[in-house]
């Protein structure tokens, strides 16, 4: 089969993939190298490591109250993720295990709501939070994200694989429905929870527009907002920006490399 056309095709495939891989990875390299360079060098396109890493770090930590900002980010993403998983998996389980025609109809209408753009919600949500005096609080960020249609779908799909014999056996043992959910379903479905945790945590960690609207003082800001804010100066210090970008990317990057398979599963999950 090694005729010239096949060989050329094969070479073209590798060339395409190599180019794509290079373009995909280069900005990561640029970010890492940028953290070691001065702002002026970054703007001049210097792509080799420099000696400004320490200075950039010092400048970053002196302009950002990092412990507080990290706490905000982890608290919002962590609590938000836990609540989202709880509420949405309860619903996914409920829709799948207890069927009724009316609830099926509600489930169907959730599919339509999946395409409601956030832009059309943000003004009423902002006024709502202002009326509730929740502007600049963690609750304002977390509350609207808890019930995620996407995660409800994800759990309903996954629940189809949950063995019904386990539920029946638990019922015979006299467990109540909520006990079955917490003591049988949750432990059995832990890999589903792990995959969902990754996508929800990542979405919360990276959220920008809604925190930008709601969080207004410096001590409430998340890392994402701080990094964005570093570039809004008249002359941003790009070395410092790169340090911030690395900190903002690191948690999701680490999760990805530790749990690569789960990560991808989570992304594919809701559409299987």
């Amino acid at each position: 089969m090694s005729n010239p056309i096949a060989l050329i095709g094969r070479a073209a495939t590798y060339l395409l993939l190599l180019l794509a891989a290079f373009i995909s990875v280069f900005p990561f390299f640029w970010m890492a190298v940028g953290a070691t360079n001065t702002s002026a060098d970054i703007l001049k396109g210097k792509a080799t490591p420099g000696g400004a890493l320490w200075a950039n770090m010092v400048n970053f930590f002196s302009s950002v109250d990092m412990p507080r900002i990290l706490f905000n980010s982890f608290f919002i993403a962590g609590v938000g993720t836990a609540l989202t998983l709880l509420v949405s998996s309860l619903a996914g389980y409920g829709f799948e295990m207890f069927r009724s025609r009316f609830r099926e109809r509600i489930f169907g209408s959730l599919l339509l709501m999946l395409s409601i753009p956030f832009a059309a919600l943000m003004i009423p949500l902002f006024i709502m939070m202002a009326n509730l005096k929740l502007i600049n609080t963690y609750q304002a960020i977390i509350l609207p994200t808890i019930a995620s249609i996407f995660i409800v779908f994800y759990f309903r799909q996954a629940t189809k694989a949950f063995p019904h014999e386990l539920r029946d056996a638990a019922r015979i043992d006299g467990l109540k429905e909520w006990q079955i959910f917490f003591w049988v379903y949750m432990p059995v479905m832990r890999s589903t929870y792990a995959a969902a945790t990754i996508i929800v945590f990542m979405a919360n960690w990276n959220n920008y527009l809604w925190p930008l609207i709601v969080l207004q003082t410096n001590e409430m800001k998340t890392l994402t907002l701080v990094v964005a804010g570093l570039t809004s100066a008249y002359t941003p210090d790009w070395g410092v920006v790169m340090v911030g970008a690395i900190f903002a990317t690191l948690p999701t990057l680490i999760i990805f490399f530790l749990l690569q398979r789960r990560f991808v599963e989570g992304m594919l999950g809701a559409v299987k």
Binding site: G34, W205, T224, A245, A248, T249
Partner: peptide, 10 residues
């Protein structure tokens, strides 16, 4: 894997 904000500033 990157956050939209981080990659945007980069």
């Amino acid at each position: 894997v990157t956050s939209l904000v981080a990659y945007s500033v980069v």
